[in-house]
Amino acid sequence: MRSINDDHGRAWEALALPIKVAHLRDGARLAFRHEGEQVTSAIDFNSIEAANFAIETMSEKELRRRLEWAKTAAGVA
């Protein structure tokens, strides 16, 4: 999990949301949470470990960009 601020200065947490991926294997989806509200991105990973590694190493600019796309897709301002 990692904290970032959106374009409006609101704090969000980037996290790996467990999901089933190809062949019903355990994987993860990049998701963001803010005060009980959660939005998911279109980014899937083959494991929780891969998702956590990506979240830890992704640039803040890239995380904010993914957050804005996820918010737009979910209809969140």
Rank of each mutant, 00 (worst) to 15 (best):
A31V: 01
L63W: 02
I4R: 08
A11H: 07
H8P: 00
I19S: 02
A28P: 02
I19L: 02
G9T: 03
A70W: 02
L24P: 07
G27N: 02
L24N: 13
Q38D: 11
L24D: 14
H23D: 14
F53H: 15
T57M: 15
A22V: 14
A14S: 03
L17G: 04
A50T: 14
T57E: 08
E56N: 11
H8Y: 06
Q38T: 15
I19D: 00
L67T: 01
E56I: 05
A50L: 15
L17W: 11
G36W: 09
K61M: 10
E49G: 11
N46I: 13
Q38I: 15
T57A: 10
L17C: 10
R66I: 02
P18F: 03
R2I: 09
T72I: 07
A14F: 04
M1E: 12
G36P: 04
N46R: 12
E60I: 06
N46H: 12
I48Q: 11
R33L: 13
W69I: 09
I43Q: 15
D6N: 03
R65E: 14
E49K: 10
R2G: 04
G27H: 04
L63C: 01
A74L: 02
S41Q: 09
L15Q: 08
A22E: 14
G27R: 04
T72K: 10
L30A: 13
I55Y: 09
G75E: 00
E35V: 11
F45V: 08
A16Y: 01
S47E: 13
A51G: 10
A74T: 01
S59C: 03
K20F: 12
S47V: 03
A28G: 10
A14D: 01
L15Y: 13
A50G: 15
A22R: 12
G75I: 06
R65I: 10
L17E: 11
E60S: 07
K20Y: 05
I19W: 04
L63V: 01
L63E: 08
H23N: 14
A14N: 03
R64F: 06
I48P: 11
A50Q: 14
F45L: 03
V76R: 07
A11M: 12
E56H: 14
A70G: 01
R66V: 07
E60P: 02
D7E: 15
H23C: 05
L67W: 00
R66S: 02
R25I: 06
E60T: 04
D44F: 09
R29P: 04
T57I: 04
S41M: 13
A31G: 14
R64L: 00
M58F: 06
G9K: 02
A51R: 01
L67A: 03
F32A: 09
A42G: 09
L30E: 06
G75N: 05
L24A: 13
A70P: 07
S41A: 10
V39Q: 08
L30T: 02
K20D: 09
R65W: 04
H23V: 02
E60R: 08
N5R: 12
H34I: 07
H34K: 06
E49Q: 15
D6T: 05
E68Y: 00
D7W: 11
A42F: 15
A54M: 11
S47G: 01
L15D: 06
T57Y: 07
I19T: 04
R66D: 13
K20E: 15
L15P: 06
E37P: 01
